[in-house]
Simulated scan of single mutants.
Amino acid sequence: MGNEYPKYVTEKAINSLKTKINFQQSETSYSQDWEYEVSDSSRIKEFMYLYENIELNKDEQFALMTVIVSSYNDALEEGKIDEEIQEKILFFLFNESDIHRNIILEWAMLDEEDLSNCYVIAPIMRELAKHLYG
Rank of each mutant, 00 (worst) to 15 (best):
K88D: 11
Y5S: 01
F47N: 03
V9L: 09
S116I: 12
L50F: 12
M109N: 11
Y8H: 02
I121D: 01
N73E: 15
A129P: 00
M125L: 12
R126Q: 14
T66P: 09
G2T: 06
Q32P: 00
N95K: 00
L90H: 12
D111A: 10
K80D: 15
I54H: 13
I104W: 08
E113R: 10
F47E: 05
F62H: 08
M1I: 14
K88Y: 12
S39N: 07
E4K: 01
N53P: 10
Y133T: 03
E127M: 06
A129I: 01
L56A: 11
M48G: 02
E112V: 12
D111P: 07
E78L: 13
G79C: 02
E77I: 13
E78S: 11
D114A: 13
K80P: 06
N95D: 00
Y36L: 03
S16A: 15
L110I: 15
S16Q: 14
L56Y: 14
S71W: 01
I14K: 04
Q24N: 11
L90D: 11
L90W: 10
S29E: 10
L76I: 11
I21L: 05
Y30T: 04
S71P: 03
L93N: 03
A108W: 10
E84T: 08
A108K: 13
L50Y: 13
I14L: 01
E4D: 06
A122D: 02
E60F: 07
D40W: 07
R101D: 02
Q86T: 10
K45G: 00
N73L: 10
D82A: 09
S26H: 08
K20S: 04
K130T: 15
D74H: 05
Y72R: 07
